[in-house]
Design a protein around this nucleic acid. Structure first.
Lengths: 125, 125
DNA sequence: CCGTATCCGTCATGATACTG
DNA sequence: CAGTATCATGACGGATACGG
């Protein structure tokens, strides 16, 4: 019995380690918008207003807050170009690009998920 | 000018579509615990108490709520085995397993991220 | 052991108005 | 255009007690 317990603890340990990695990731990437912001900025740099348009539904406060946090964690660079009206552009860093696999897997899964939802809606109706 | 606008709208459109897929995914998987719960259950089915132990820090209320939602969205099956003390086991469905790529990419990224954090802490000290 | 019920505090999110 | 200020709401989280 105790031996079995030990084995369980072992397997649980490695599982817990993996869980910690995922929790770490979610700690910096968590929330409703951060991953989406990173995704759109990896596609191309964008201005504040453009981001608001692409991320339908986000308010300026949340967007500003998330951008600040993403800048702190080095996912995003805020560049200011002086000029008549000065231009502010947000740009994804190489570190953001290290997330591209995660993002593309998530996007693929999201596509399949949407298909599944559509089908179950057909069944209901 | 209007033609350029149209082109921008085109590129934005495809970007927005991808954004929607990711938002869809985050809608069902979002929050602090859902992905972690799915991950541990994909490794092996677990009981309520075991989950509480593995996910250090989650309270019974949150765990119950997330498990209920995951059951609704068909990520998890709740199985009850009758017996002296009846046993309740939560099990990942095949649909959860369709997330395995997302999860392993996220885990890998989390590992690298932890390394990066460690290094930047060394630099500071 | 498996949860539910309750209370309560904190934080994330949102809507809107407003300033440089 | 880029963001801040303000206010409101709900999600999340912790503690504890309780019932099946």
């Amino acid at each position: 019995m105790e031996i079995i317990e030990d084995q369980l603890v072992q397997t649980e340990e490695s599982c817990i380690t993996s869980v910690n990695y995922i929790s770490d990731a979610l700690y910096v990437l968590g929330g409703k918008w951060k991953l989406v912001i990173i995704f759109t900025l990896v596609e191309s740099p964008k201005r504040f207003g453009e981001l608001q348009k692409v991320l339908k539904g986000i308010g300026p406060k949340m967007l500003a807050k998330d951008l600040r946090e993403l800048e702190l964690n080095e996912f995003v660079v805020r560049r200011v170009y002086e000029g008549k009206p000065e231009k502010v552009v947000y740009e994804a860093t190489p570190y953001s690009k290290s997330l591209s696999k995660v993002l593309s897997e998530l996007k693929d899964w999201g596509m399949k998920h949407r298909e599944k939802i559509k089908q179950s809606m057909r069944k209901v109706s």
